[in-house]
Design a protein around this nucleic acid. Structure first.
Lengths: 196, 196
DNA sequence: TTGTGCCGCTAACGGTCGTTAGTTAACGGA
DNA sequence: TCCGTTAACTAACGACCGTTAGCGGCACAA
């Protein structure tokens, strides 16, 4: 068995991925080097390869971890029995919270997925397209039921997802607004933008 | 004088920047190489340096070109005499149009500014902060006048700017919605999200 | 026709990249 | 106590990076 535990019950691989997520966000995947990453982990670059297979494996891990989290949460929301507006609110709140407390990971899945090698790239984009389609379906149903105003569903999805991902601009200047206030304001804006 | 004109009354430097904008958007600034760019221009990499000073000069040109365009349009809107809601609508429409017909440039100014070298980076961020502040002021006034609902102004700015920049996801699948419909839908969503 | 400057080219520079090979020290289980 | 695995190290690989030097030809002003 492994005794590879570092402090905090996490394997060294997890530590590497965590440090990498910070680095990839700050410099971008392409500009972040393995020697850079190694220094943050406290090890020589070559030693990283005892724990990971390649640089892009790190990216894959991060991107699909985030994707899976969003998808399984959407599964739960879809299965729940609430109005379409409440469903969208729940989804928006989840996105905001993810952005707040898993900032680095979500940011990378949002911005650095281009650097995924095939076939992971296509796979990722498929999942994303499918996710957006499902959000669009909820909105479409909301309009049909007269709960939401008549917007083109895909456009609404686009606005919502983009708006939430813009929180990264806010992350850097956390002082002015509290996280709770931010979430409340965004929900107010977006949900009332949907409401009929 | 120069006979450097290519077809389309543009200097070779402008051609380089145009091709670069496409490349930088597709691959990211860091992953796009000068040899790559040269190939698209139809020239050897070294020859590029007869027209430009460095790779990052291209990035600077693009980023500040876009920034200046937005700022001078904001000047015009501020000087106009209309309700705060109309002002915000005008700004939103401008952002959408810029995103539609200067997609590559706007995208780069949005996503690749991190790679600007100092002091351009600080300069750019200052301009951006200032721009957002001015948008926030319009919204603040709109709330004070009772034209808009009581949102935290900076959050509203964030939502609007991010929502618009999300059009890049749409650009790739232009089929489903026309540009006009997209603009109409986004304005409807965003302006009514502001309205009291 | 001659001279001048623009703008291609090839070759190469020093550097950094991701990654591999090969070695060695530490440690847990038999 | 010895063995086998784990994970660190140093050294190096070939590829590619942005950029410079230097050279040659072509277009235009004189």
């Amino acid at each position: 068995m492994a005794k590879i535990q570092s402090k905090k019950n996490s394997t060294k691989k997890e530590v590497i991925i965590e440090k990498a997520s910070r680095l990839f966000r700050e410099k971008g995947f392409g500009a972040a080097s393995m020697r850079d990453l190694a220094e943050h982990v406290g090890v020589e670059a070559a030693s990283l390869y005892n724990h990971i297979q390649s640089k892009s494996e790190i990216l894959q891990t991060i991107c699909f971890k985030v994707a899976n989290e969003f998808i399984s949460n959407l599964d739960a929301v879809e299965a729940s029995h609430q109005s379409t507006l409440k469903k969208m609110e729940a989804i928006i709140r989840l996105h905001i919270r993810m952005m707040l407390d898993q900032y680095e990971y979500v940011y990378i899945a949002d911005h650095e997925w281009r650097h995924l090698p095939e076939p992971y790239l296509s796979n990722f984009l498929n999942q994303r397209r499918n996710y957006r389609k499902r959000l669009g379906d909820i909105i479409e149903e909301g309009i049909a039921r007269g709960e939401m105003k008549a917007l083109e569903p895909y456009t609404a999805v686009l606005v919502i997802l983009s708006a939430v991902s813009g929180i990264d601009s806010w992350q850097r200047s956390r002082k002015s607004t509290s996280a709770e206030a931010l979430e409340a304001n965004m929900v107010k804006f977006l949900v009332e933008g949907l409401k009929k």
